[in-house]
Amino acid sequence: MIRTHGLTKAYGAITAVDGLDLDVREGDVYGFLGANGSGKTTTVRMLLGLVLATSGTAEVLGEEMPKAARHVLPQVGAMVEGPAAYDHLSGRRNLALVDASGPGGARSSRKARIAETLERVGLGHVDDRPVGAYSLGMRQRLGLASALLRRPRLLVLDEPTNGLDPQGIHEIRELLLELNREGTTVFLSSHLLAEIEQLCTRVGVLARGRLVVQAPLAELRGPTGRVAVHTPDVELGRSLLDGTLEEVVHDDDGPRLLVREPDPAALNARLVAAGVRVTALVPERRHLEDVVLEASQP
């Protein structure tokens, strides 16, 4: 769906995006992760043809951008750097203007489409007050509605849950997952790890303009090969596991032993047999946060 080769954008001497090779596949919920200023927004803008690349190519929906913008963009819904609307007009009126200014979409079905989309993003009840009087969350929903209006094949969203309350975040997350199940590919750029972790199937991490990680989320969060044994009998465990024990942790979760052991079941049996009281025993998994931080080290 999105494929870039050596995509680069330089502003004078500063290289904002450096040799990016993105690969977003059909059906993905792709999490594009990076700190503020890492080049996320510039990349998104290059994909949408707003910013012209210094070198490299970007392919969206199989066609080169920005050359094929006229074919590609009607099938793409986007929200870039927060929503924007004409403040003195109502939400409905804003959507009507957006719909009318571009190609596709019969005029006769416009009203129905707008009503349906507003319903979908949870603004079905909204009255005719101007957008200027909207809350931040309502604006965010309106921006999303504007992106969804054309029933796009690809959604490119930049920080879509910004300014929403927990209930709103949950609703939007459910909506995106539902859209994804219906066949929409979602490209989600965010600096919030939790959001990416809960939504995405694939993750790309951007640091200082370079793509440092790109892999399926499941792979990134794979087991570390260690098992965490929560037990009050720390000393007993230590003597028993001499050789495979790597670390003893004392923190708020209570004391636990980190053991390199490929077979957690056998370990458990051994411990219990030796009289070590085990309150919990879990295979240790990698945290996305650690992966990101590690990969982002300069």
Partner: peptide, 14 residues
């Protein structure tokens, strides 16, 4: 300045 330009251009409007 309103931020609506980028949405017009990705709508797309030539």
């Amino acid at each position: 300045q309103q931020g609506t330009l980028r949405y017009l251009l990705v709508r797309p409007v030539g």
